[in-house]
Design a protein around this nucleic acid. Sequence first.
DNA 1: AGCTCTTCCTGAAAGC
DNA 2: TGCTTTCAGGAAGAGC
Length: 285
Amino acid sequence: MPELPEVETIVRGLRAAVSKRKIMSVRLGKTDFIVEPAALAERLPGSRIAAVERYGKFISLTLEPAGGTPRFYFMIHLGMTGQIIPRASSAPIVPHTHVFLELDDGRELRYTDIRRFGQMFLLPESGIAQFRTKLGTDPLDITSREFVKRFRSRRARIKALLVDQRVLRGMGNIYADESLWRARIHPEKIAATLKPAQLIALHRAVRRVLEDAIRLKGSSISDFLDAEGRRGEYQLHHRVYGRAGKSCSRCKTTIRRIVVAGRGSYFCPRCQASPRPASRRQPKR
DNA sequence: AGCTCTTCCTGAAAGC
DNA sequence: TGCTTTCAGGAAGAGC
């Protein structure tokens, strides 16, 4: 599933591969994940890709139409299984490819999404500010101070907050679990009960995990491919995610999986002490 | 404020 | 063996 490191990897690849290219035409397959498919088909042709940026888990293509028409943004969220890869127009079409952007150099930027949990929409320049207010700070930009401030008064479980895009934009399930393991914090711990030192440790862990993952071009569990169609390698370094039943690399205890905030959450029961000790029992009368 | 449940979707894996 | 059921989850919305 594409989270911050995967999206960052794709954005870097796209920036190198399609910057300055002009979109010549648009072909669409299924469109139920596109906010206004007609607007997309109408406005993309003729515009040039002026910039490629990441905003949380969103890919933002800045498009410049010909003839002085104001620039606008083509926003893409990959959901669970989205892939966006430039290919030669003659390349075979993989199943579930639903958007084809013909470029001025004989290639097509193709969007493939098996489950169609992805999202696409256009934003005018004036809509960007509004869009941004819905999302929290980028975890790679946030200062330690700000990080502590954001969590210390929240009564929600830390895992739920880490994957909440309004708190930190770009974090997802894999990197939340990996960061919590690193900081030795149980996913069900109430954020407000964490000591400042623990929050600082968590901030450091988040940065470290994300930076390492970006360096290895993300995690490919099943579907993730970068803009060159290559798999990432960070999945080989996961300490807890997807490792239920295997042993903790730090203490050899068996990794467990529980559901927190509706997501599978992996942790080491020994390194990450439970907020509710299992041994405590209620006396009967 | 924050929790659970539901919906969207497909393919892989488990169950019978 | 082969069909059926369950599960995975990012985000949004309902209801409590």
